[in-house]
Each structure stands twice: as C-alpha cells, then as structure tokens.
Nucleic acid binder design. Structure first.
Lengths: 172, 172
DNA sequence: GGAAAACATTTTAGGCTTAAAACAATTCGG
DNA sequence: CCGAATTGTTTTAAGCCTAAAATGTTTTCC
C-alpha cells in the first residue's frame, strides 16, 4: 500500500479513530431525525388502528403481507418480509388463526413448512382497514409536495442500500 | 365559501372517499420505505450494542438522554423525549438503577417527581459506547454525500412537521 | 380551607420482540 | 445410502411496550 496524503477513503475505522477522530454528528442527527419521524408516524397509526378497528399494528402488518400473496406464504417468508424474528411470527400467527383471520396448513411437499393465508373474513377485514389506513398515511404526509415525496423516496433508497452494504460488511 | 372547480384542497376525507377515491400509493410506498430504513438500521445498531457491550437499545437510548442532562431528568421528561409510555420508563429505570448505571431520588420540592441521573459508572460506560456507536452510524450512512445528508435532514424535518400537524388535527 | 382538577408515577394485563436453543424434516456429499 | 449440514419452525427466557386504571401529590379556584 503506497503512502497517502489524502487517506480518508483508505483507512479502516480503528485507524480513523486514532489518527483523526472525525466528526459524525451530522449523520447521528440524521439518524435521530429518521427515528423520530418513524416513531411519530408509527405511534399515530398504531393508535388509530386500535381505536377504529381494535387491531394491533403487527397484526395489521402481517395481514398486509398476506393480502399481497393470494397463494399464501411460509412463516419464513413472512419473517423476512416483516424483518422480525421467526419466533415472533409464530406467536402472531397463532393469535390470528385463533381469531379466524388466518388459515394455516402444513405444506404437502415439505413437512417442515407452514403455509398461511388470509381467510375470507381476514381478507375482508384487512381491505376495510387498509382503505382507511391509506388515507391516514396520506394525511400524515400531506404537507410534502409530490416532488418532496419523489426526492425522499430517492434518498431513502440510497440510505437503505448504504445501510445494507454496511450491515453486510460486518456479517459477510 | 365560493364554488370550486378544482376542489381537492377543500374536501374532507369522507367526501374524497366518495367522490374521488384518490390514489395515495406514493405516500404509502414512502411510508413503507421510511419504515424499512429505520427497522434496518435499528436492528443493526441493536445487534452491535448487544455483541460489543451486552446492552439493549432502550437502555442505551435512555442513557443517551441522561448524558445530555447533567442535572438529571424527571421520568416524564424522559418519557416525552423517548416517545415511549410512562410505564415503560418505570421498568427501564428500575433495571438501570439495579445495575448501578442510574441514580434515582425523589424531588425535594415535589414529592410526586422522581429525578434520575447517570452514575459515574453509567456515564463512563455510556461515553465508551457512544463513541463507537457514532462510528456505526457514520458507516451505515457512508454512501450518502454531505449534500444527501443535508437534503434528507430538510425533508425529514418537513415530514416530522407534517405528521405532527396531522396528529394534532385528530387530537386537538 | 377544601373539593376538584391536574399531574407524576406505578401497577396491571396483555401483547410484542428478540436471541438462542431445541426440534423436525430435507438436502447434500461421499 | 447414510451421516452431516442445512432449512423451517417452535420453544424458552428475558425484556420491551402499551393503554388503562390506580395511587399519591400538588395546584386551582371557589
């Protein structure tokens, strides 16, 4: 490795920390703001779902995944899509089967796999909730212009890619 | 109120739903992307905190609030800042007092109020974790240019304001 | 002064969430 | 074909989280 005058790009994080304790305050503030927005909106949606439909947000999210998959999904699929642990899905599904919103059966070709689907009731209820949910989201983002929305989409796509890359660096 | 030809801005959500079932798919996609980014980063940070320091994210967050308040905070303050329920803070504080990171005392002037502070140990441990935490965040956002960061900050500020306004509309 | 409202916190009941270990079924490589 | 790795799910133990009710304290305002 040749000598470097401008070396920022080449140093690993340890070296950085020793030689140039860089300031990452902007990124930190950005992260906190991102978290604040999400927490704020999530809390609002959670409360409205509870008051209007007496349903929890995780239940709604799970039904949303299934609504997009008419042929059903495996628990693993759901777990990956929702970005939650496997065990979490097990319990969530249990309660939704219990309440008649989901149908669960063991795959015929692979007896490890559980396939879940929305029941007729589950689909009907979800559609009803989803329609209203969409208006809440629109209202929560109402002050953003279409251009703002596009720009945020673009920047968040970049953020997602950056974070995934960073995560992959540590867990190759 | 005069007659309107372009009436979008004037209709309430019920009228909208009946007359012009508008498409809010873009806002919905934006919300899902925002949520994905946050979940991704949050999960990454949670895992690193656990592996490197054997600490949970909520504990770290609570200590971060207290680090900014040398004179301590009341439980209500903490609860508002962290945007979590009061009861949640009670339990969190209990465990952190138990492990020697926090000091809690009843206010002398108002016996309803509990004031909590970081202990010496708590502060030292937090500072050590925070330094490393900052590099993780920087790395997670590494592919964003300074301009991207500024632009995201701006758009998220607008998003936060919009969401707060929407929340206030329903809960005046 | 004293009842009523407001406030800060805790408790309660239930659900969500995770990481890790355990279990079960399938696939892979020799 | 058979043992070993892999995959899909559940279980376990612990902690997080919420909404609502309960408790104790202070303020308000007649």
């Amino acid at each position: 490795m040749p000598a470097e005058s401008d070396c920022t790009a080449m140093l690993d994080s340890e070296t950085k920390a020793v030689e140039t304790p860089e300031d990452h305050a902007d990124e930190l503030r950005l992260w906190l703001r991102l978290l604040t927005c999400t927490t704020l909106i999530e809390g609002e949606v959670r409360g409205r779902l509870r008051h209007r439909f007496d349903v929890t947000l995780p239940r709604f999210d799970l039904m949303a995944q299934l609504d997009k998959a008419p042929d059903g999904m495996t628990l693993s699929d759901v777990s990956k899509r929702m970005m939650v642990s496997n065990g979490n899905v097990t319990g969530l599904v249990e309660r939704l089967v219990e309440s008649g919103h989901l149908d669960r059966r063991t795959s015929e070709t692979d007896r490890r796999v559980q396939v879940i689907r929305l029941t007729k009731l589950g689909r009907a209820e979800f559609r009803r909730m989803a329609a209203e949910h969409e208006t809440w989201i629109a209202d929560l983002f109402a002050d953003l212009s279409p251009k703002d929305v596009r720009e945020l989409m673009r920047l968040l796509a970049k953020t997602k890619a950056s974070a995934q890359k960073s995560a992959a660096r540590r867990r190759p």
